[in-house]
């Protein structure tokens, strides 16, 4: 088992941890988005969908635990990496040309990630928590639209929109970066990775953000 810990503990090993956990979180985004889009089918369809999920509780719980571990791994490793990188760059340039040599998303992974983290704390402590408490009641749609924790609340709506914009930013760099980390950088795959990357940094965040925009800003919530 020693080789296993050594493998993940080197500087490249930590990159691989980031990439593995990051891509697994990306896979979850697809499933989560499909579920969310059921909102557009109306309250009955959405309540039915979440109700069906609730009846699969043990399976859902198991997935949630795995997801939480992946997420915690991603965040702890991100904090560790960021602190180490700060130590390596204690002395700063007076004139810094980073803006001319690298992309903004690539330089702000820690910042965009941290704001996504704040969003997730709010998201889990409101919607997710209410879904757990209410799971027998079945009024899931009403919770999502409610005036205090749902899209009836302008602040919540704006937080959702900002967070999804930043998620797109995070994945603009992160998704393709993970492939570089795995050593997958060949001309013949370059365009393909770019297209798949666009699904993750553009289409999926747009899909998520359509919900607060439609139900929050356009329909004015509940």
């Amino acid at each position: 088992m020693n080789w296993f810990f050594n493998f993940f503990d080197s500087s490249i090993g930590k990159k691989i941890q980031m990439a593995l956990t990051g891509l697994m979180l990306c896979a979850f985004l697809i499933i989560h988005l499909i579920g969310n889009l059921v909102l557009f089918a109306g309250s009955e369809a959405f309540n039915g969908y979440v109700g069906a999920l609730s009846s699969l509780k043990p399976v859902v719980r198991a997935i949630e635990v795995i997801l939480a571990l992946i997420f915690i791994g991603h965040v702890i490793n991100a904090i560790r990496l960021t602190l180490e990188n700060w130590r390596s760059t204690e002395k700063k340039y007076k004139v810094n040309g980073a803006g001319e040599t690298s992309s903004l998303p690539s330089r702000t992974m820690g910042v965009t990630g941290s704001i996504i983290f704040i969003f997730l704390v709010v998201h889990l402590s409101t919607i997710w928590w209410q879904f757990q408490v209410q799971h027998g009641g079945g009024h899931f749609y009403d919770i999502v639209m409610s005036a205090n924790i749902g899209f009836g609340n302008v602040l919540i709506t704006i937080l959702y929109i900002v967070a999804m914009f930043l998620l797109g930013f995070h994945l603009r760099h992160g998704f393709q970066s993970a492939f570089q980390t795995f050593g997958i950088r060949y001309n013949k795959y370059g365009t393909f990775i770019e297209w798949v990357s666009a699904i993750f940094w553009l289409l999926i965040p747009l899909g998520f953000v359509s919900i607060p925009i439609y139900f929050g800003l356009l329909k004015g919530g509940f």
Partner: peptide, 12 residues
């Protein structure tokens, strides 16, 4: 040295 985050500034 710090860890690589694939920003690509080095290549430039």
């Amino acid at each position: 040295f710090g860890g690589c985050t694939n920003t690509g500034a080095c290549e430039v």
